[in-house]
Simulated assay, not measured.
Amino acid sequence: MQFRTLIPLSKTNNPIDYNSKVISLGSCFAVNMAEKLDYFKFENHTNPFGIIFNPVSIEKIIKRVFKQELFTEKDVFFHNERWHCFDIHSDWSNSDKQELLENLNQIAKTLVQQLSNATHVIITYGTSWIYRNTESSEIVANCHKVPQKQFSKELLSVETIQKSIQNTIDLTQALNPSINFIFTISPVRHVKDGFAENQLSKSHLFTALHQVLKTHNSQFITHNYFPSYEIMMDELRDYRFYGEDMLHPNPIAIDYIWQRFSENYITEDSLLTMKEISEIQKALNHRSFNPDSEQHLKFLSKLQQKIKSIEEKFPHIKF
Rank of each mutant, 00 (worst) to 15 (best):
Phe78Thr: 06
His79Arg: 04
His79Met: 10
Asn80Met: 13
Glu81His: 11
Arg82Lys: 15
Arg82Tyr: 13
Trp83Pro: 09
His84Glu: 06
Cys85Arg: 05
Cys85Ile: 05
Cys85Trp: 07
Phe86Thr: 11
Phe86Arg: 13
Asp87His: 13
Asp87Ser: 15
Ile88Gly: 03
Ile88Val: 14
Ile88Glu: 05
His89Thr: 08
Ser90Asn: 03
Asp91Arg: 11
Trp92Arg: 06
Trp92Thr: 05
Ser93Lys: 03
Ser93Pro: 03
Asn94Phe: 04
Ser95Ile: 14
Asp96Tyr: 08
Lys97Leu: 14
Lys97Arg: 12
Gln98Thr: 12
Glu99Phe: 06
Glu99Arg: 06
Glu99Ala: 10
Glu99Cys: 05
Glu102Tyr: 09
Glu102Asn: 13
Asn103Gly: 12
Asn103His: 08
Asn103Leu: 12
Leu104Thr: 10
Leu104Asn: 09
Leu104Ile: 08
Leu104Gly: 04
Asn105Trp: 07
Asn105Lys: 05
Gln106Ser: 14
Gln106Arg: 08
Ile107Ala: 09
Ile107Ser: 02
Ala108Ser: 13
Ala108Leu: 08
Ala108Gly: 06
Lys109Glu: 11
Lys109Gly: 04
Thr110Gly: 08
Thr110Ala: 13
Thr110His: 07
Thr110Asp: 12
Leu111Ile: 03
Val112Cys: 04
Gln113Ala: 07
Gln114Tyr: 06
Leu115Glu: 01
Leu115Ala: 01
Leu115Asp: 01
Leu115Arg: 00
Ser116Pro: 03
Ser116Glu: 13
Ser116Leu: 07
Ser116Gln: 12
Asn117Leu: 11
Asn117His: 13
Ala118His: 01
Ala118Val: 02
Ala118Trp: 00
His120Asp: 01
His120Phe: 04
His120Arg: 03
His120Gly: 00
Val121Tyr: 00
Ile122Cys: 01
Ile122Asn: 00
Ile122Met: 01
Thr124Ser: 02
Thr124Ala: 03
Tyr125His: 05
Tyr125Lys: 00
Tyr125Asp: 02
Gly126Tyr: 02
Ser128Lys: 01
Ser128Thr: 03
Trp129Lys: 01
Trp129Glu: 01
Trp129Val: 00
Trp129Pro: 02
Trp129Met: 02
Ile130Lys: 01
Tyr131Asp: 10
Arg132Phe: 08
Asn133Ala: 11
Asn133Val: 14
Glu135Lys: 15
Glu135Trp: 12
Glu135Ser: 15
Glu135Cys: 13
Glu135Arg: 14
Ser136Val: 15
Ser136Asp: 13
Ser136Arg: 14
Ser137Phe: 04
Glu138Met: 15
Ile139Cys: 05
Val140Glu: 04
Val140Lys: 04
Val140Met: 11
Ala141Met: 11
Asn142Trp: 06
Cys143Tyr: 04
Cys143Met: 09
Lys145Arg: 06
Lys145Asn: 04
Val146Glu: 10
Val146Asn: 14
Pro147Ile: 06
Pro147Gly: 14
Gln148Ile: 05
Lys149Cys: 07
Lys149Glu: 13
Lys149Phe: 12
Lys149Ala: 10
Gln150Ser: 14
Gln150Asn: 15
Gln150Thr: 10
Ser152Tyr: 10
Ser152Glu: 15
Lys153Val: 09
Lys153Asn: 09
Lys153Met: 10
Lys153Leu: 07
Glu154Asp: 15
Glu154Met: 14
Glu154Phe: 15
Leu155Lys: 11
Ser157Cys: 09
Val158Ala: 06
Val158Cys: 08
Val158Gly: 06
Val158His: 05
